[in-house]
Design a protein around this nucleic acid. Structure first.
Lengths: 251, 251
DNA sequence: GGGCGAAGGTGATTTAGATCAAAGCGACAT
DNA sequence: ATGTCGCTTTGATCTAAATCACCTTCGCCC
């Protein structure tokens, strides 16, 4: 596999100092409230459970798309490569997210775990047979379209600073959307985010270089917006403050 | 509507000098081979036909999403605005393409025609009722996800030159994909593309400025890759040559 | 516990593309 | 025809981010 920064680490679990229930805050599916019908499919005879170590490739772009995957625990990313090695991470996925449901019979992206991950592997045929499963799949696809729209705005129109801020906000639950409820506790608008992605992975997701990501993070630290522990654990000092930096909200 | 370059013109019909059947070459749905079941829905009592002039807004981001649209003829775009006026066009749609099927009950993008356009307007309820309709919708959504993945690569990792080349190739039918058949006629690898989008719309789609788009096009002209007639009609002198400039294919 | 390799940070420099500023050019209306 | 308005092109300049180069820090294994 032709690629510069091989082997990176990540996950996108989330915790909050403020003591929220640690929900899944990805802008992609999440689809936590899976239907009963979908639960049926989970138990279908063809369905199996599989575990991967961190940075394992689940499939490559161009592989036959015979299966469909749901993340049980862990995290994964989908990415595409250009022939000269440039990489774009197109989706970051967490528990409950579906992937591998490409249009054609070939996968349009490569899929790789960020951390050690367990997935459910479905047969495409089983899904096609059940209309309930279909409708679950449709919901996931539509949510992914919306997520991609937001990401297109980020990639096409946002500054490096705004991209990193948007990225961090992505993992803060119940905050940063159109009608943000604001901090629960007026005096403690903090949060802790475990990125568990390398700088290279973040860069490839945000359409930046590793150096730029690093610089922006350093600058946010310097400005007191965030604090770091262990490179991939970020303490957000004022969530609202960070949100202002995303560019998506009027001042 | 807060936006700098108001009122632009466009469409994305396509013709080829080489005399291909003038197919729809959009990387988005196209879904020409609509199923019989979908044809049923087209005739449902709640379904109506509506025409718009060029640059009419079909709906705004945030509007209640009560309907779903299919383009009969013409072209449209979906876009998002940042509060300071930056715009990102997230999709360009042609005949057969579906839009307005957002996850939530609010549209996540604004929709605007590029040229005078006729659409079919469906009730969301009708769609939800029919599982055949659902499956058509799923297909469209999945194709859109793939298209967005490609676009993410373009926005995140391609140079201005590569973006414009990719954009032009998008309208050349049966060419530029992974297994491109090459020119039918060895000595005549030309094509004519009617963009029918303004430079501003192209720029907002490609994540560039209007000046950069203009400069790249001028440069391609100078280098003999393309020829122009009337600003929005592009004659591609060597399709394979243009394809080499997209960055997606190994040299 | 020290050495090695991978990941992260930071400074100096370059550059692609943005921004700023004028002209061209067409289409339409007077 | 002539003026006007919007769009496009082109040139000059600026700048955000890339590139290049190097150093620091961390984790791991002998």
């Amino acid at each position: 596999m032709a690629y510069r920064g091989l082997s990176e680490a990540g996950s996108h679990r989330l915790e909050t100092v403020a003591g929220h229930a640690a929900g899944h805050a990805s802008s992609t599916p999440s689809t936590t409230g899976s239907t009963d019908a979908w639960n049926e499919i989970r138990k279908a005879p063809g369905t199996r459970r599989q575990s991967y170590a961190a940075h394992d490739v689940i499939y490559f772009e161009g592989d036959d798309a015979r299966h469909l995957y749901e993340i049980v625990s862990g995290a994964a990313m989908l990415y595409k490569l250009l022939p000269d090695g440039r990489r774009q991470v197109v989706e970051v996925l967490g528990p409950g997210d579906l992937f591998g449901f490409d249009m054609d019979d070939q996968h349009d992206c490569s899929a790789e775990t960020l951390v050690s991950t367990t997935v459910l592997v479905f047969n495409r045929r089983d899904i096609q047979a059940s209309s309930a499963a279909q409708s679950h799949l449709t919901r996931c696809a539509l949510q992914q379209v919306c997520a991609m729209h937001d990401h297109a705005v980020l990639l096409g129109r946002k500054s490096a600073y705004e991209r990193v801020a948007s990225f961090l906000m992505r993992f803060v639950p119940n905050r940063g959307m159109a009608h943000c409820p604001g901090p629960k506790d007026e005096n403690n608008d903090t949060g802790v985010v475990s990125l568990n992605m390398t700088r290279q992975e973040m860069a490839d997701y945000l359409g930046l270089t590793i150096e730029t990501v690093s610089r922006v993070i350093s600058d946010m630290k310097r400005k007191g917006v965030i604090r770091l522990e262990k490179h991939d654990r970020v303490i957000i000092n004022r969530i609202c403050g960070l949100c202002q930096l995303t560019g998506t909200h009027a001042d």
